[in-house]
Amino acid sequence: MLEAWVDALIPADQDPGARDARVVLYIDRQLARKFKRQQPAYREALSAVDRLAEGQFAQIPLAERSEFLAAMERGEAPQGLFPDGGKAAFEMVLAHTLQGFYGSPRHGGNKDYASWKMIGVAPLPVRGRQQYEVQS
């Protein structure tokens, strides 16, 4: 479900999207650590979006998923599901998606430096570790 959400936020084109960059892995790791307080908000948001899409959010075409999320971004999702029209949930997942997509791969997202390659930023070595080539 979350993978379908982040995929709609940053879909793949000629470059990898959020799904390919493993943004969900980043979010999952952070929900166990730094974002632990936001676990209930994620559960509620995912449940509400799934109800909004009648249990089919992950299966519907990208264009329809994008429409659902655009309504949330504008705060126009049904008030019965989201007291604020979905705006807070949308902004939370968007912020974490961007962090996972553009952040350091050592945190779980940006697999193979996907976004850095896309924008022309050279991958940096991990701090505190020497880089070397294994010779056989």
Rank of each mutant, 00 (worst) to 15 (best):
I60E: 07
L94Q: 12
A89I: 02
R127A: 15
R51N: 06
P123Q: 10
K111G: 05
K111P: 00
V134S: 15
V134N: 12
T97G: 07
Q135T: 10
V24T: 12
G108R: 08
R22P: 02
D50Q: 10
R65D: 09
V23Y: 08
L94R: 06
D28C: 07
Q56I: 01
F35G: 09
E3K: 12
Y26C: 04
Q131P: 00
E54S: 11
P123N: 14
D112F: 10
D13Y: 06
E54F: 04
S47A: 12
M1L: 09
A63W: 00
G80S: 10
V49H: 06
V6W: 00
D7E: 11
Q14Y: 06
V93L: 15
W5Q: 08
Q14S: 14
V121F: 05
D20L: 09
A21Q: 05
R127W: 10
A8R: 08
Q56D: 12
F101K: 14
F35M: 13
R65L: 11
L62E: 09
L46W: 05
L31V: 01
I119G: 13
D84E: 09
R127N: 12
Y26L: 08
E67V: 04
A32Q: 04
D15A: 15
P123E: 07
K87V: 02
R51T: 05
F101Y: 14
E64F: 03
Q14T: 05
G55M: 08
A63K: 08
L98D: 05
A122H: 04
R29M: 13
L9D: 01
G100S: 07
Y102R: 13
G55I: 00
S136W: 09
G103V: 00
V93F: 06
A71I: 01
D7G: 11
V49W: 07
N110M: 13
W5T: 11
L124M: 05
R129F: 01
R43F: 04
D15K: 15
G128Y: 05
Q59G: 09
G55H: 07
Q130S: 14
S115C: 02
P123R: 12
V24F: 06
